[in-house]
């Protein structure tokens, strides 16, 4: 993120045509975002039948949610998924620094690492589901070559969330590399030259120069990754196979649970409560990350 002048460069005169220019965006956002948001908030306090208007039932949905083992399970799964996907960030930092160091082939590496980002997530889920298949998947075969017993990675609640997370890292690496690569480009080269003259090793330079100066980009990537990981849906939907896969009820994420409640079971009030809880969780996690960043992000 580049730094901008604090104040827009507007001329002093009031320009009334500004209202006409923001009108389309404002109307669309009010009707299709602000109103739906308020409606979700209200619905979370209602019991909404499939037909007809909802009826206010106070905190009933929230009470039910807190007593729902599926909800706590999904919350745990989303937390595990997010925690593991975040481990992809150190990996991305190291790879980004390496790509930055090579004289040749940068463009090729960038394209290869970015391919999963431009691949349909549905297709990603299908391919990985096949690779992780317990009977004739590529991974189990590769493991058998080194004498490790295979598992039903995506058909076993003990492993599925971790399998999703590994695929999640694979999918998100390209985006993180581009953002971190842009951050690396902003680090002045003479810093490295000066420290090289002082005899600093490459590893020492990485920790003394690269990491601190890259920390704003690392923070940005951490926020983005956390928020999107907490909203994981596509991979779970595809890799669980189908909506009615009861065998893996223990591997659902929060947004999967929301989708199921809202659009499969048509319990809109309950789904709305799940969505509100998700919002609160994301706000708390983001606020904590902003508070903690003061301790580790270096701004020049």
């Amino acid at each position: 993120m580049t730094r901008q002048p604090a104040r827009p460069r507007t001329s002093g005169r009031i320009d009334w045509s500004a209202y006409a220019m923001i009108a389309p965006a404002f109307a669309g956002l009010a009707a299709l975002y602000l109103w739906p948001f308020l409606s979700t908030f209200l619905k979370s306090f209602q019991t909404v039948p499939v037909f007809g208007p909802g009826r206010f039932t106070g905190g009933a949905n929230y009470d039910k949610l807190l007593a729902d083992a599926d909800f706590w399970g999904a919350l745990g799964n989303s937390a595990k998924y997010t925690a593991i996907v975040l481990l992809g960030i150190p990996l991305a930092i190291v790879l980004a620094a390496m790509i930055q160091q090579v004289a040749r082939g940068r463009a090729v590496y960038r394209v290869l690492f970015f391919l999963p980002v431009v691949t349909l997530p549905v297709a990603v889920g299908m391919v990985w589901r096949f690779i992780l298949n317990g009977d004739f998947g590529l991974l189990n075969y590769a493991l058998s070559l080194i004498g490790v017993p295979g598992q039903y990675w995506v058909a076993d609640d003990r492993f599925a969330v971790y399998a999703f997370a590994v695929v999640g890292i694979w999918m998100g690496l390209g985006v993180n590399l581009i953002i971190l690569g842009a951050g690396l480009q902003n680090i002045p080269v003479d810093l490295y030259e000066a420290s090289a003259l002082d005899g600093a090793s490459r590893v020492r330079q990485f920790f003394a120069i690269t990491l601190p100066l890259l920390s704003p980009s690392v923070f940005f990537v951490t926020i983005l990754t956390t928020i999107s990981a907490l909203q994981m849906f596509d991979l779970v939907f595809i890799m669980l196979g189908s909506v009615n896969n009861t065998a893996l009820s223990g591997s659902k994420t929060i947004v999967y649970l929301f989708y199921e409640a809202a659009f499969v079971q048509f319990k809109q009030g309950y789904a709305a409560a799940i969505a509100i809880v998700l919002l609160v969780i994301i706000m708390i996690v983001t606020a904590v990350q902003f508070a903690v960043q003061k301790k580790w992000v270096v701004y020049d």
Partner: peptide, 30 residues
């Protein structure tokens, strides 16, 4: 928002920024 001066500009833009922070699932039902 960037270039013109009009009453309520800051407030309206703050509203836009708030929308940016809400995850998309909150809008789907509506």
């Amino acid at each position: 928002f960037a270039r013109l001066n009009f009453p309520g500009r800051r407030t309206l833009f703050a509203c836009f920024l708030l929308m940016l922070m809400v995850p998309s699932q909150l809008f789907l039902l509506g």
